[in-house]
Lab assay of single mutants.
Amino acid sequence: KTVHVNGVQYDFDNPEQAERFAKEMAKKAGLQIQFHGDQIKIE
């Protein structure tokens, strides 16, 4: 899974790890999470 945070890309082999990371980042920055198939976007 790939997580995009403000244009920066983070790759994870483990989907659960990717989602946990995305939730942490979104919570910290007060941003929205969008799921697009294999990609998670935080903007």
Rank of each mutant, 00 (worst) to 15 (best):
E19D: 09
N6M: 10
N14F: 05
P15H: 11
I33L: 09
K28P: 09
Q17Y: 03
I40H: 06
H36S: 10
K23Q: 13
Q39K: 10
N14V: 04
L31P: 01
K23R: 13
A29E: 14
D11C: 15
K27G: 13
E24T: 02
I40W: 08
I33A: 07
H4Y: 15
A26Y: 05
I42L: 14
M25P: 03
I42F: 07
A29N: 13
D11L: 12
D38A: 10
Q17T: 08
E16A: 09
H36R: 08
Q17A: 13
K27Y: 13
Q9C: 14
Q32R: 04
K1P: 07
K41C: 15
E16Q: 09
K1A: 11
V8A: 03
K28I: 14
Q9A: 11
V8Y: 08
G7W: 02
D11T: 13
A29F: 15
A26N: 06
R20L: 14
A29Q: 13
E43F: 11
K23H: 11
E24I: 03
I33S: 05
V5A: 02
A22Q: 04
G30Q: 09
N6H: 09
A29H: 15
V8Q: 07
Q17G: 03
E43T: 10
K1D: 03
N14S: 14
V8W: 04
T2K: 03
G30L: 05
I33H: 05
A18R: 01
K1Q: 08
N6R: 01
P15R: 11
E24F: 06
G37R: 04
E16Y: 07
V8G: 02
A29S: 10
K23L: 14
E19F: 13
R20E: 14
A26M: 04
Q34T: 14
R20M: 12
I42R: 01
P15S: 12
G7E: 01
K41V: 14
G30R: 00
A18Q: 00
I40C: 06
E43S: 08
N14I: 04
N6V: 03
K28G: 06
K27D: 15
K1W: 15
H4N: 08
E16G: 05
E43C: 15
K41W: 15
E19K: 07
Q32I: 12
Q39E: 11
K27Q: 14
N6F: 14
I33R: 00
I40G: 05
M25F: 09
N14K: 04
E16D: 08
Q39I: 14
I40Y: 06
Y10W: 06
I33T: 04
G37C: 02
I40R: 00
E24H: 04
L31R: 00
E43I: 11
F21V: 02
H4S: 09
Q34A: 10
D11A: 10
E43K: 05
A22E: 06
E43G: 11
E16L: 08
K27L: 15
H36P: 06
V5F: 15
G7F: 02
V8T: 06
L31E: 05
P15V: 12
E24M: 05
M25I: 13
